[in-house]
Design a binder for these strands. Structure first.
Lengths: 213, 213
DNA sequence: GGCGAACTCTGCACCTGGTATACATACGCA
DNA sequence: TGCGTATGTATACCAGGTGCAGAGTTCGCC
């Protein structure tokens, strides 16, 4: 609310960043499971108790970077132009994310980001923790749909589940390919194609699934 | 494979059941978080080590009853009649589940089941563990769709995410209402209406969402 | 500049979930 | 009856996470 953060606040942010960076550096070097939080605390020159004051769990040391995006789909839907449907707005936003290599789309291959993808995908507890954000994103999006799209609460919830789930799946797929070594620029065209296909499926429904192959 | 389980096998099943029952009884009485696994082991007259030989984690003591249903959507899709689409088969199956008050639909209000719903909904770790099954169900269903519906792998995955997610949301909603005290018979009509609405949404797509409320 | 209040960090002890090791027991089968 | 193996046990241990009481900082105000 005010422009001056104050010494306390600044110090806090520095500590937060220091812990996070120490953690990720150590995890990337020695492996997530093999580095105990006490070692992270030592490296960040902070007590274990303090570490847990900044990050509620060990997993959060890694995945907190994705926490900000929990509200993103909801915001996109709220801020959409008046003549745009929620689906169209999310589609445009996701495609823009791909173009900009937004890490949330799974299409960023900067070494740190790619290593982070890999670490997360390799560690079930980290994936599980991310699922938690997914649930939060669903809830927020459902609320946004309710508020701006004149639907029942149920419809909003169901739509949110589908929308978030599909974007999640797309991102997961991209991240996995990049973790395997595929360069982002090379994957880009395919990622766009897949995303367009996915949003078309969302728009038109699963009625297209045939009776038998 | 053989009709005679043998003493060893029978004993194992009894131990399994004994641990599970002791655990759930204690959890329901004193609260999930307040009962350490050691106490469960004592109550079941088994060592802690043995307990963990039967159940990989504390959460599984509670949620293992839902584990069997991981393959269910996949099975339904595989076993569907030749002239039936995957969506129709799942719809029929879910509605049948509601009719039979299958606990997996969230519409069973036998006291033990309802208390179980409540305990799970109240404990984030338990919900998280269930999410894990959801992921498994998605993967299995995607495979089944791939094998029997002549779709691309991507389409199958996206469809699976939507289908499982929506059923999950419906079940969650029902369970929550029942946990709040609504009787299953009273909820039934609404649950059917909601399910039909949800499957219609899946069939027709989210194109119906309006630009602005 | 200085003071009290509020906030923050720390060290320590502790609890709980989960695992490794090494040893005992009981079953299945010949 | 007796042997090999699957199953269970006791013990000690590790790591994540919390409660507590006190020391050290920062803030707002005089």
């Amino acid at each position: 609310m005010n422009g001056e953060p104050g010494l306390r606040e600044r110090k806090k942010r520095r500590t937060h960043a220091a812990i996070s960076e120490a953690a990720i550096a150590l995890f990337l070097e020695h492996g997530y499971t093999r580095v105990p939080v006490t070692r992270v605390a030592e490296a960040a020159e902070v007590s274990k108790r303090t570490l847990f004051a900044y990050f509620p769990t060990k997993e959060d040391l890694v995945v907190h970077r994705f926490a900000d995006h929990e509200e993103e789909p909801a915001r996109v839907v709220r801020d959409r132009p008046a003549d745009s449907t929620p689906l169209a707005a999310l589609r445009t936003h996701f495609l823009a994310g791909l173009r900009e290599r937004d890490p949330i789309t799974g299409l960023n291959d900067r070494v740190e980001v790619r290593a982070l993808y890999q670490m997360i995908l390799d560690n079930p507890p980290l994936v599980a923790r991310l699922e938690h954000f997914r649930a939060g994103a669903e809830r927020a999006l459902a609320q946004a749909l309710c508020d701006t799209a004149d639907t029942t609460a149920l419809t909003a919830r169901l739509a949110a589940v589908q929308l978030v789930g599909v974007q999640w799946a797309l991102a997961h797929d991209n991240a996995q390919r990049l973790a395997y070594g595929e360069p982002a620029d090379e994957r880009y065209a395919g990622a766009v194609r897949d995303a367009e296909h996915a949003f078309a499926l969302l728009a038109n429904g699963l009625g297209v699934l045939p009776a038998r192959g």
